[in-house]
């Protein structure tokens, strides 16, 4: 913990120190996260990479403010996180779109709740609809869109509130492989165009290496940070370059010993 604390606290937007989370089950306390430390810096693409049910989603829920920590400290811009806030946007694996709203309705929802006037908010929403490449689908309902397009709506919706941090919980986990590659490229393009701090959860090593500035490899339940990798390969990354493959092999090796 001390090592991470020494490293530039000023610039970190999310600060997570010794966070624990456990749930009550009929069999007793079930610890999901144990002594978790992380710091997310401004405009950094941070990937939490770990095996299946290792508590990654719980970590996102804690940072989002959907759930409360059982122990330790979890701060956003110096303040303890107590509840969800528009400054921390979330992209859900299930998309969690509002199915009775059109693409426009979904994307402008946050601004509407904040009381932004219709003309202004539709202009701003249109901006993000264009950014994610959904122009022409403003009036479509989620059921009328493909899985990849739905997740684009999810990304635009979170972006439209202009959050400081984007939390992405396996956003492409439910997509087929082809769409998944495409969406990874798209996300990289969107992120380059509109830099944000991103905390991205995945169990796919290629996805992690393709997108991340930094990867935190997590242990299996209870989750804690096992190892950190700083990925400074040039973007867009070549999935078959020797450096990429070497990193892939190394991190996969670590994972195997974790399981």
């Amino acid at each position: 913990m001390s090592m991470e604390q020494e490293r530039g606290i000023e610039s970190s937007i999310i600060e997570c120190a010794g966070v624990c989370k456990s749930f009550k089950t009929p069999e007793g306390e079930h610890q999901v996260i144990k002594d978790f430390n992380l710091q997310a810096k401004e405009n950094e693409f941070l990937v939490l990479f770990g095996p299946g049910q290792c508590g990654k989603t719980t970590m996102i829920n804690l940072i989002a403010g959907f759930e409360k920590v059982s122990g330790g400290s979890l701060k956003f811009m110096g303040k303890e996180i107590t509840k969800p806030d528009p400054s921390r946007g979330v992209v859900f694996q299930s998309t969690a779109l509002f199915p009775w709203m059109t693409t426009m309705g979904n994307v402008e929802y946050g601004l509407k709740m904040a009381g932004v006037k219709k003309e202004e908010r539709q202009k701003r929403a249109q901006n993000y609809i264009d950014l994610v490449g959904l122009q022409g689908f403003e009036k479509s309902y989620p059921v009328q869109l493909s899985g990849g397009m739905r997740q684009r709506v999810g990304i635009a919706r979170a972006y439209c509130n202009e959050p400081k941090v984007m939390l992405m919980d396996e956003p492409f986990g439910a997509l087929d492989a082809q769409t998944r590659y495409l969406m990874q490229e798209e996300l990289q393009r969107i992120w380059e165009a509109e830099k944000r701090t991103v905390i991205f959860v995945t169990n796919n090593i290629e996805e992690a290496l393709y997108l991340a500035d930094r990867i935190l490899v997590l242990t299996n339940c209870p989750a804690t940070v096992k190892k950190e990798y700083i990925i400074d390969l040039p973007r867009p990354r070549n999935l078959v370059s020797p450096e990429f493959l070497a990193l892939r092999k190394e991190i996969t090796g670590i994972m195997d010993s974790t399981l």
């Binding site: 403010g65 509840k83 946007g89 979330v90 969690a96 946050g110 709740m113 509130n161």
Partner: peptide
């Protein structure tokens, strides 16, 4: 999760 999404977007 839809409720969470609304909370995250700032709905009261």
């Amino acid at each position: 999760e839809v409720i969470n999404a609304a909370k995250m977007l700032g709905a009261s």
